[in-house]
């Protein structure tokens, strides 16, 4: 049974368990587990456009082609930068694993040096391409890394949501806590607040466009706003295809060097 089928099974079991054991409301952990186990599609590909806005409103745009696939060994992702000109052709590949605590494998290809280089995956708290997102913000965070509790319910853009507060088990984590608004209909976190170690609000993530493609909820427009620095980053995902049958051997050194 592959990882995708496993996740669907776990999601179903989790929701059934939630209904059976807690006829009223599921717990914070059950909600965040269901968010984590939400079907992601066997593979997803598209063009990602990232707009970085500084505190004076000046914009810089980065774009890349991204392909993600879920296989027995875990998730593999390949990103090839389309612009700006000085990074065009640069590619980045990440293999992540289901095993708890196992570090990702990552490689970068720089066309000027014509060489694929293995890089450390430990900088997960670093900014992704100078944006307001960290690598960790963009990845799937396992629910076991935090303690969760439901603090209430609220409607956002007409969507009923649970409000779940998550506190990292590791006190050295990047954030002291996050608060997520999870849609009761789609099990997607449609808004999230990130708090720094002084307890002050640091960043706010909002999702403004969500679409079901081939039965999978895909986030098409999202924005991360750093309220302390007054900067923001918008991400748009376009030309999206889900479950188009991308084989595992597409995630190789060859694909990195020749692009998508």
């Amino acid at each position: 049974m592959n990882a995708h089928a496993n996740r669907v099974l776990i999601l179903t079991a989790t929701l059934f368990a939630a209904v059976a054991l807690h006829a009223a409301e599921p717990s914070g952990t059950e909600i965040m587990q269901a968010v984590y186990d939400r079907p992601q599609g066997k593979d997803v590909q598209g063009t990602l456009t990232m707009t970085l806005v500084d505190s004076k409103g000046k914009e810089r745009v980065r774009s890349l082609r991204q392909v993600t696939g879920t296989f027995a060994s875990g998730e593999k992702k390949l990103m090839v930068f389309l612009g700006p000109a000085d990074v065009r052709g640069t590619s980045f590949m990440n293999w992540s694993y289901e095993e708890a605590g196992r570090s990702d494998d990552q490689w970068i290809y720089l066309p000027a040096l014509k060489r694929v280089k293995r890089i450390s995956s430990e900088g997960r708290g670093d900014s992704f391409m100078g944006s307001d997102f960290t690598y960790d913000d963009l990845g799937d965070r396992h629910p076991s890394e935090d303690e969760h509790r439901v603090t209430g319910s609220e409607s956002i853009a007409g969507e009923d949501c649970w409000i779940v507060e998550s506190v990292p088990r590791d006190p050295k984590d990047l954030y002291s806590r996050t608060v997520t608004w999870v849609s009761k209909k789609t099990m997607v976190g449609v808004k999230r607040e990130y708090y720094d170690h002084r307890g002050a609000l640091l960043k706010t993530l909002t999702i403004s466009k969500l679409e079901s493609i081939s039965g999978v909820w895909v986030i098409l427009k999202t924005e991360m706003r750093n309220v302390q620095k007054n900067t923001s980053t918008r991400i748009e995902f376009s030309e999206v295809k889900v479950n188009s049958g991308i084989p595992e051997d597409e995630f190789t050194e060859r694909a990195m060097t020749r692009g998508l």
């Binding site: 570090s103 494998d105 280089k117 293995r118 890089i119 450390s120 995956s121 430990e122």
Partner: peptide
């Protein structure tokens, strides 16, 4: 050869 050992890449 290169490989990952925790946070370090050995080569």
């Amino acid at each position: 050869a290169s490989g990952a050992m925790g946070p370090v890449i050995l080569k």
